[in-house]
Write a protein that binds this DNA or RNA. Sequence first.
DNA 1: ATGAAAGCGCTAACAC
DNA 2: GTGTTAGCGCTTTCAT
Lengths: 340, 340
Amino acid sequence: MTHEFAPAAPTLEQVAALAGVSRSTVSRVVNNSPHVTNEAASAVLEAIETLGYVPNRAARSLASRKTQVIALVVPESTARVFADPFFASVVQGVALHLAQTEYTLNMVIASETNPDKTRRYLMGGNVDGALVVSHHRGDHSYARLSQTLPTVFGGRPMSAEERDSYFVDTDNVAGAVEATRHLLDLGCRSLATIAGPQDMPAGFDRLLGWRTTLIGAGLDSSLVEEGDFTPGQGAEAMRRLLDRGVPFDGLFVANDQMAVGALSVLRDCGIAVPDSLAVVGFDGDYFGQSSDPPLSTVAQPSTAMGAKMAEVLVDLLEGRPVERVTIMPTELIVRGSTRR
Amino acid sequence: MTHEFAPAAPTLEQVAALAGVSRSTVSRVVNNSPHVTNEAASAVLEAIETLGYVPNRAARSLASRKTQVIALVVPESTARVFADPFFASVVQGVALHLAQTEYTLNMVIASETNPDKTRRYLMGGNVDGALVVSHHRGDHSYARLSQTLPTVFGGRPMSAEERDSYFVDTDNVAGAVEATRHLLDLGCRSLATIAGPQDMPAGFDRLLGWRTTLIGAGLDSSLVEEGDFTPGQGAEAMRRLLDRGVPFDGLFVANDQMAVGALSVLRDCGIAVPDSLAVVGFDGDYFGQSSDPPLSTVAQPSTAMGAKMAEVLVDLLEGRPVERVTIMPTELIVRGSTRR
DNA sequence: ATGAAAGCGCTAACAC
DNA sequence: GTGTTAGCGCTTTCAT
């Protein structure tokens, strides 16, 4: 079965005719230029209304040499990205903020097998700016991109060369410190941690926060196992930690997904949380909300972070002054896993 | 701080000059028309390569009257949509499939306060087609849209007038029947269900499947409570079910998120799952994977559904024959919540 | 304040 | 097979 669809798109010219003015005037009204008499303007507005006119983006873009399109670049490997609630929230924030602007959101899955395709597309004048997100990764493989195209990253860059890129992040070190202190305040005296990948800023910084806090308190900081931020590896790391045979009464996990995996292992092993072991996660996503017990965590304002990324980029595009770095606050949320 | 970015976009004309041919020929090569000699073609290709030429989308679109853009319409209320793993997977499927085509994905959050804005945008010739998704909703408020713009919906339409729209769905009735049979096969003889909203196809059909199976088996089907597909309401519905004071040994919940909420209530009440009560959910998302106990569920191929939606729309746009209705298979996944 | 005119970069007949 | 010629619908000087 095939289908026929009627185009029926009124043009600026038709609006001009109906309003009895020139195309230029209509264009001025549409772009709300101040140099139009109220009469002319209202005549145009009325014509637009009755015709149901909508400016053609392509034509406008061609003439003005602006696309009004913002690309949301999602690294392919991170395409399961959507399986990550934190990431999904960031995307949501971006979309919600952009919906209030004149910009359109173009989701681009960067093919890693053919990175040039993506780069060409982005640099080919198809978009006005780019937002690069990849949970926890701090993946700035598109760092060079930012020299050509206004770009805002989610998460701080890992390498030094990219220090000058625009980005929005949370203070992972401070968040980890807060989580660790919380454990200490609870009376825990031997702590373990399940860290994230050390080649990712989020993984690195959270471990750093944990470690420095313990060292500052004169406690041991060698009970560390690493996972890749997924529940499965969180569970495995938990087992490895247990297998060490060293007792501990407090655990900081670098993200909620791994924490939930860890909790399931603890349940299987009959280790009571929080009574025998207090657990704190990071992110504040719904993984932790529905776990048993509910997970204490260091929440990040994920949706707000997405919105902020969009805001920074739009400001950049409109030539408004913007901070290169935006650090959003984290918040410790205490739930059952640390409430004795 | 402000920034300067260099455009530097080579045009088709420059390519033509360098290759020593006309613009038409370059255009033909770019659109791989067969009517070009190999020599000419390779000369053009070489020029394109050295110049790093990328066709300008706006110009191409304006001239060809095609945008190569597909809108992904997300109803605003469903913007927390991303909080729903099922939905997020569908989006992922869409994005992944489209990345392999010449089409670009334009995410549109439909503002419900100003629905016309969205409709105008979509009908204003800014996109070639639309994909409408909204988890469980079957929300075809954009049904009229499909008369003007090639549109594919996720989930079957609720109202009769829209019966002729294109959509991709799973057989919710059959899935519910399978889940209920599974409970019956386990030996359960008095079943309850937490249904979804009855104004949503997914909610309606799943209850229907459960009910007809019980009636067919000569069993009572009055133990029904309704929730809105969120974990919170799943928990509340569970409490109401328990408050009725009528004993039951099998429970079918219309989606995994509500099921997880129900499980937490059961845990609080000390009701053993699956020993005292077997529980089956629907969707197959990670909510159920990490619950305690892991949830048996009727899984939907969410990512594949998204990909299929994209595929159907693209076929429609390219004039290929397509089925108006695509029903994807569900699969019963047996986990701890029904394994005694 | 408003109109006329000249493109923006490309595709699509139409001739050759 | 290839070049020529018109536009696609809009913005933007530049006059007026």
